[in-house]
């Protein structure tokens, strides 16, 4: 096991921030190239006329998920030392619902709003400002939300643990679901094209 490099002390002090910059560059590049700086394009996901969001997101999830799985299997990556976001069932479900309402209204999410703003879109800049305002206000009034925020804590709970199956089975199931999703996404886009809701 040699990875995560940072966890095995293979990085010098200060290297982390340079890596943050390079990783960010790659992240922003891919988002912009795929057209995810455009709110209209992202909103197409919610009207089933342009499923770029689904395709990019799920291809990325599949790639990283399979990479982690195979590197772990080969003994290169110690999965136990990669930080898995902790589960808080209710706040994450409710937070997701609130987030989704804002996502549909803005047509952008936090990362894509930055790409939208720097590429000249005024709506992207407003979404960035709005995000900042929302987080600032919630942070200031955090005291009244704190007990809910910390409720239904389950620690680093993963899907294999919940369904009592092996890691590989879950990975395989997600791959199958995503492939079916890609197939449906292509059909939906073709339908939208025929109806004239989407440029050819």
């Amino acid at each position: 096991m040699i990875a995560p490099f940072n966890e095995y002390g293979l990085l010098s002090d200060g290297a982390g921030l340079w890596i943050a910059l390079v990783i960010g560059l790659g992240f922003g590049w891919c988002l912009e190239r795929a057209g995810m700086g455009s709110a209209r394009k992202l909103a197409g996901q919610f009207y089933l006329t342009d499923l770029t969001v689904f395709k990019v997101m799920f291809t990325a999830i599949l790639t990283a998920m399979l990479g982690v799985f195979w590197l772990g299997w080969l003994g290169v990556l110690n999965i136990g030392r990669v930080y898995v976001p902790e589960t808080f069932i209710l706040p994450q479900l409710v937070g997701g619902v609130v987030f989704g309402i804002g996502f549909a209204a803005a047509g952008l999410c936090p990362g894509t709003s930055c790409v939208s703003a720097v590429t000249g879109r005024g709506d992207g800049a407003m979404a960035v400002l709005g995000m900042f305002t929302g987080i600032f206000a919630t942070g200031i009034f955090f005291g009244s939300l704190e007990s809910f925020y910390n409720s239904t804590a389950r620690g680093q709970l993963t899907l294999p643990a919940v369904f009592h199956v092996s890691y590989g089975i879950v990975v395989f199931a997600i791959v199958l679901v995503a492939l079916a999703g890609f197939f449906i996404a292509e059909r939906l886009e073709r339908r939208a094209q025929i109806r004239g809701e989407r440029p050819a």
């Binding site: 997101m57 998920m65 609130v98 990362g111 995000m131 919630t138």
Partner: peptide, 27 residues
């Protein structure tokens, strides 16, 4: 919409990047 997303992202401890992509890939 940005403001509402901000509230949601605080509650959920992340957004489409930190939760959907990152946590999604880590199951």
């Amino acid at each position: 919409g940005g403001g509402i997303m901000g509230v949601g992202a605080v509650l959920a401890r992340g957004c489409t990047s930190g939760q959907a992509l990152t946590g999604g890939a880590l199951l």
